[in-house]
Amino acid sequence: MPVPEGRVTDEGDALVVLRRVDKHFGSLHVLQAVDLTIRRGEVVVVIGPSGSGKSTLCRAINRLETIDGGEIRIDGRPLPAEGKELAGLRADVGMVFQSFNLFAHKTVLENVTLGQVKVRKKDRRTAEERARALLDRVGVAAQADKYPAQLSGGQQQRVAIARALAMDPKVMLFDEPTSALDPEMINEVLEVMQQLAREGMTMVVVTHEMGFARSAADRVVFMADGRIVEETTPEEFFGNPRSARARDFLSKILHH
């Protein structure tokens, strides 16, 4: 059977493929020939010390950071440069930020409706129905008419997840989604993410939450100094880390 042009043939069900991706910030080489393949339905948790390049990796996938070398493909198509095509791709890639980044002048409902109407061209009624269903799913339906500043951090982050889901993305990127939260709000966000993972959403999660990595990840990617040092199952990684760098990192954060 002929293979459609532009599709990856050797990666099976690959959804996101990074090949020899390079990125510099001035003299700092933040991503060094990074190779990573994320399959459809897979939950990949990226961990590592700060400054290891994991956030940059996450942001490069929807081109919030441009890359200096290498290639990123999403669903078989190379990442487009600026313009309409890039906007179209970004709509297919959901992103959740550390600092929530809800639109401050719009209500919670408007935040979740906006992209559906302006990008997906749905009519307002359909978009609002979908938004309310999503807000209900992440447990903030009662806050629909409030403004972001009136919500707690945990609630804001759940709205941000709903906003990303409203675009029906192929893959969700989470860039340290719980790092800016008060401790008592971390779980409510992680629970929503756990549920998403169970429902089969393809996810790339940059996080320091080792509990989440253990329970939800199909694969753990450990990064240090701009490279992927280890890439394995959570059981393997936490039970039997192979690299000295990973053992050192784990000894510093798992102290009970």
């Binding site: 929807n62 791709l89 959901g94 992103m95 639109f103």
Partner: peptide, 22 residues
């Protein structure tokens, strides 16, 4: 905040839309 601009672009809004709406 720059983050809101990034969020707008991340849901697929174009530059003119981001400017006008957000």
């Amino acid at each position: 905040p720059l983050g809101q601009v990034e969020a707008a672009r991340a849901i697929g809004l174009s530059f003119p839309q981001t400017l006008r709406i957000v």
